[in-house]
Design a protein around this nucleic acid. Structure first.
Lengths: 124, 124
DNA sequence: ATTCGTTATTCCCAACTGTATACTACGGTT
DNA sequence: AACCGTAGTATACAGTTGGGAATAACGAAT
């Protein structure tokens, strides 16, 4: 199943594992989550929503919607787009976008550690 | 919105809050999650899937499906049902069901604490 | 002015989830 | 035997979500 591209934890001992999702919530619901931050990363990498979406097997429509949602909910835009030009335009991560992804990955890492710890600890 | 009946955290300072979901995963996906365990609790309280579902504004069909999924994935049934009789039948929580809900609430409590802590800690 | 590739936007459709409804099975009580 | 309220099951329906395709807007390079 490989939810969100994250690996399933070891179930060999009990048959169960502890899993979870974590996100930053803003006024319209999710502001930053795993998928959204991966998308931001890919946008930085490719300089294009189109390419970023393609690399994640995500439709451009969906990717664009996520980007719009993030920018709407953020005080300062996480991403800036330009249209036209020789390359047709592009999208780049702003400084605020860099900071946001960094902060989210730090949070995510601590969460993964929490899950791992609970996986060992809990009776399941 | 009040997702899953859990309260939204304080957003007064930053406009954001850290939220998450946690669950115990078995072979067919979710084994125990917040909603499922609340359902178990209500079943214990009412002695009936019908009443438990009604009290949560959940359809009987859905509630029954969740119960079946939990029992299928658990080594020993968490819930036992009987049909017929003066009361028409009923469903009660087994000892294993009690233990499972207890363990899940303990896990959930630690998770809530983790979220609270992250909410204070993180930049969002 | 034409070309080009991307952003931005719209519309329709498929898949999934859960609801509502209706029905049968059950078995103690009367 | 009839009654009653629950479990258990099937079917049809509604809402949401995301995909796919089609199209316009854009602007630098040629």
């Amino acid at each position: 199943m490989e939810r969100n591209g994250r690996q399933a934890r070891d179930q060999s001992k009990t048959g169960y594992c502890i899993r979870g999702r974590i996100w930053v919530e803003g006024v319209e619901g999710t502001f930053l989550g795993y998928g959204r931050v991966v998308l931001l990363q890919r946008i930085r990498q490719y300089g294009s929503i189109t390419e970023a979406a393609k690399s994640m097997q995500m439709s451009y429509r969906h990717a664009w919607e996520l980007v719009a949602s993030m920018n709407r909910q953020s005080g300062v835009p996480l991403v800036e787009s330009s249209t036209g030009g020789k390359a047709g335009g592009g999208t780049r991560l702003t400084e605020a976008g860099e900071k946001a992804t960094e902060a989210f990955w730090a949070l995510h890492k601590r969460f993964e550690e929490f899950l791992m710890q609970e996986d060992k600890r809990t009776a399941f």
